[in-house]
Amino acid sequence: MSLDAVSISRLMSKNVIIAEQNQNVYWICKLLSQNNVGCLIVVNDLDEKKPVGIVTESDIVKTIGKLDLHQLQVPIKNHMSHPVITMPVSGTVTDAMRIMCEKRVRRIVIIENDKMVGIVTDKDLLKFMIDNKDVLSEFMTLSPRENMPKEDSSHFWFCNRYVG
Results as ranks from 00 to 15, higher is better:
residue 110 I to D: 05
residue 74 V to W: 09
residue 14 K to N: 14
residue 149 P to Y: 06
residue 86 T to G: 01
residue 131 D to I: 01
residue 31 L to Y: 09
residue 32 L to M: 08
residue 96 A to R: 08
residue 67 L to G: 04
residue 135 V to S: 10
residue 2 S to R: 14
residue 55 V to D: 04
residue 134 D to A: 12
residue 88 P to Y: 03
residue 41 I to K: 03
residue 118 G to V: 05
residue 150 K to S: 14
residue 3 L to A: 02
residue 101 C to G: 13
residue 29 C to V: 11
residue 79 H to Q: 11
residue 99 I to M: 11
residue 20 E to H: 02
residue 149 P to N: 08
residue 45 D to A: 05
residue 68 D to M: 14
residue 130 I to Q: 10
residue 46 L to Q: 12
residue 123 K to A: 11
residue 81 S to N: 10
residue 17 I to Q: 06
residue 104 R to S: 04
residue 33 S to V: 03
residue 86 T to E: 09
residue 24 N to L: 04
residue 147 N to M: 07
residue 56 T to A: 05
residue 138 E to Y: 08
residue 45 D to R: 02
residue 126 L to G: 00
residue 110 I to W: 01
residue 52 V to I: 15
residue 111 I to S: 03
residue 134 D to Q: 13
residue 28 I to L: 12
residue 101 C to Q: 03
residue 131 D to G: 06
residue 117 V to P: 03
residue 86 T to I: 08
residue 110 I to Q: 06
residue 13 S to N: 13
residue 103 K to H: 12
residue 84 V to T: 05
residue 101 C to I: 00
residue 69 L to F: 12
residue 76 I to R: 02
residue 124 D to I: 01
residue 40 L to Y: 07
residue 135 V to H: 04
residue 8 I to V: 15
residue 2 S to N: 15
residue 48 E to K: 14
residue 27 W to P: 00
residue 89 V to A: 14
residue 128 F to A: 11
residue 38 G to E: 02
residue 125 L to K: 00
residue 3 L to Q: 00
residue 43 V to F: 05
residue 78 N to T: 08
residue 127 K to A: 10
residue 164 G to N: 12
residue 60 I to R: 02
residue 80 M to H: 06
residue 60 I to A: 02
residue 141 T to D: 13
residue 85 I to L: 02
residue 66 K to Q: 13
residue 157 W to R: 09
residue 114 D to A: 11
residue 164 G to P: 00
residue 139 F to R: 05
residue 13 S to T: 12
residue 47 D to M: 08
residue 7 S to C: 05
residue 133 K to W: 01
residue 93 V to Y: 03
residue 53 G to F: 00
residue 7 S to T: 03
residue 107 R to Q: 10
residue 44 N to K: 15
residue 66 K to G: 13
residue 161 R to K: 13
residue 52 V to L: 11
residue 48 E to M: 06
residue 35 N to G: 03
residue 75 P to E: 07
residue 102 E to K: 14
residue 90 S to K: 14
residue 158 F to R: 04
residue 45 D to K: 06
residue 85 I to P: 00
residue 72 L to S: 04
residue 150 K to W: 01
residue 32 L to I: 07
residue 5 A to L: 14
residue 40 L to T: 06
residue 20 E to G: 14
residue 61 V to F: 10
